[in-house]
Design a protein around this nucleic acid. Structure first.
Lengths: 256, 256
DNA sequence: TACTATTGTGTCATATTGACACAATAATTT
DNA sequence: AAATTATTGTGTCAATATGACACAATAGTA
């Protein structure tokens, strides 16, 4: 007799998954000065959740985060960064799993491994949401972008997880470069500024932003201007990969 | 028949502990311009380890970190901060547990819950090591301070964990105040500077440091100078608790 | 050609930082 | 008592960074 994916998971998942440890990915998307977050919809309910899942027994949690993201949303090659681990004792199996378990076995076992308490390691990433096409996996109803200002009802503590990720991402702007893998290979300073403004949620002065980004010395300026726009053609830039990753590791300078 | 504490843990620990999730605490101690780390010695071996342990089923991981620290070292009321979660798949039961398990049961079961893969949530704290008296628990041989420059042989990936904690602590100096719970209630600017210099591992200019700390506006200066020293009496300061904790939460300013 | 909007860059005042110096203080030595 | 030594408080100056804003150049449109 065939089981659904969730039922199969409940019956056999403990053979390959690490009980008690899960990943929750907060994927921010920006586009046209808007910051959104990618959420999955619970089947037949208006409850949403972060793309998460359990860690497999033989994988690094970093690898788990990437695999889970791909399986649940189709997103691949995303720069994920760990930001916090959430471990309040009430975190345990959710109503999705409870419902599935009850339908699987009339003798509902609340001690089922999948309903036990678990700790979740949070990862975040930022993507250009116009560049990606998230698709929900087979156990979710939808996978769509949501305004941070208008979040739907969320499972468990997922709203708190999102807020913590946003805080971390904003803080890191002070000592880590961003933009690589987000912008086109060649982009304008306006594009880069828009990215920062979207994350920070406020306007920055064009001249001062320009001066600051150039002071990091991780941008190579193209000889040729971008053209075809309806006004003065701006310079095109690209990240100097070597310097970018050095700064990613060692910081942007001016700290203790 | 009586069992040792470790044997008891192996036999019954899974009833109260969350399998697969542990805590490792990195406790830095500073005193007289030296930074050390608190380590436990494995019984009868010259191998050392961080004060860690498993999370109990009904406790928050933050509470677990504090409890584990108290049990393993006697240290209490320490300001612990989570800094990173380590989850490479090779992390599993260590030789201490293996040895205990073999002595307990001649039919050695390598699938014992305590030997399975686990993820560790790292916490760090900084204390004045002259102010505390760590004591090893009953399953450790010793509990002593070690120079960061001269670490002994360490279990598992504990050296990497220590390095990561140090990085994080140094980075946080840029946007979080420190010193509360570390210095005497009243201290001199020299004391505070010494704390920063010990963490950073380099000298800071006295005048510039003074100006910077005062610019944070979290210090209250006493009318009376400290006296009895062999030269000009310095001012005494104390942290303005309200402003200190506000800065701890919101940052020290001057960021994006 | 004139207008409009965008971009590049410069300027100015202010703030911060690094390096260093001088004065005041207080104990010790002569 | 005076001189010396060491420490602390604070100031200064140059360099650097930052915020606010202005002007010139560019390019499409009216």
């Amino acid at each position: 007799m065939n089981h659904t994916i969730i039922e199969d998971f409940l019956l056999h998942g403990h053979k390959v998954n690490l009980p008690g440890i899960s990943i929750d990915n907060v994927i921010f998307g920006f586009h046209e000065n808007q910051l959104k977050v990618l959420l999955l919809q619970v089947v037949d309910k208006n409850i949403w959740m972060l793309p998460g899942g359990f860690v497999m027994k033989k994988e690094h949690i970093d690898e788990a985060a990437a695999r889970i993201l791909k399986v649940r949303t189709g997103l691949d090659e995303v720069f994920l960064q760990q930001f916090y681990t959430f471990g309040q004792p009430e975190r345990s199996g959710n109503e999705v799993l409870v419902k599935a378990l009850k339908s699987l076995d009339q003798r509902y076992d609340k001690n089922h491994w999948a309903l036990q308490r678990f700790v979740t390691v949070g990862y975040y990433a930022l993507v250009e949401y116009a560049h990606v096409s998230p698709q929900p996996d087979e156990i979710s109803q939808a996978c769509t972008w949501h305004d941070l200002d208008k979040l739907p009802e969320l499972l468990l503590d997922h709203e708190a997880i999102i807020q913590k990720a946003l805080e971390e991402m904003r803080l890191k702007l002070n000592f880590q470069p961003i933009g690589y893998n987000l912008l086109s290979e060649e982009f304008t300073m306006k594009n880069l500024q828009s990215l920062y403004e979207t994350i920070l949620g406020r306007k920055l002065d064009r001249a001062n932003f320009n001066r600051k980004m150039l002071s990091y010395e991780i941008l190579d300026r193209k000889e040729k201007h971008f053209s075809g726009g309806a006004h003065k053609a701006p310079y095109l830039y690209k990240f100097n990969k070597k310097k970018y990753f050095k700064a990613l590791k060692s910081g942007l300078g001016r700290d203790f």
